[in-house]
Structure formats: structure tokens, C-alpha cells
Amino acid sequence: MNSEQQNATLRKMAQLMRDGLKTQTEPFPETEKEFAAILEELRRLDPGDLEGKMVISGFVDHPYGPDRQRCMECMYYLVHRQWCDLPELAVPVEADWWCRLWRI
């Protein structure tokens, strides 16, 4: 994905969330078992199904929970690329967003 495509995808994701896209923020995967089950769901999607990825992984466009978790501290987030490096997602993200595949 070149930077133009990346920006366009980022804008599209932001717009979907602004428009009220309902995503599965709960339950948060307590252990690897539940985490792996979500990844399995993601793998069944068409890699280009952006909305599907966002719904299953529970994207929101703001920090989440009492600890105000956000992509910025997630291990999959590449700060300079503004990119989620989890292979099953592989999407541009903003530092202040969050999803339930958050890991630190």
C-alpha cells in the first residue's frame, strides 16, 4: 500500500467510525485462546474487507476503557508508519484509536 492508498484507507476508516459503525469492542480477549479465535475470524475474511475487519476487531476512534488504552501503546502499532502491523489486520490507524486486539 503506497502512502496515497494508505491515507485514503485511513480517511475511509475514520469516516466509517464517525458515521457510527457498530463494532464488537467486547468481549476483550482475556487470553491467547480468545485472541486466537478472533484472528481466526479475521482470516476467514477477504483481505480487502475493511469494514469486516473493523467490526470483528472492535475498532473505535478514541482511547478505550478505564485505562484509556489506545493504539499508540499497542505492540502492533508502528508509530512512524501509523500502521497496525498485526498481519490479520494490516491497516493504517491513528495513535488515539483502539481495538480489542490491543496488546502491550
Binding site: F28, P29, E30, T31, E32, K33, F35, A36, Q69, W102, R103, I104
Partner: peptide, 14 residues
């Protein structure tokens, strides 16, 4: 199963 080559976490923390 699932414990090899995967960091085990509890609520997202190792």
C-alpha cells in the same frame, strides 16, 4: 496447544 511461538498474555499484558 497455542502456547508455543505465541506470547501468553492476560488482558493484553504478557
Amino acid at each position: 496447544p497455542g502456547t508455543v511461538f505465541k506470547t501468553q498474555t492476560v488482558m493484553g499484558v504478557p
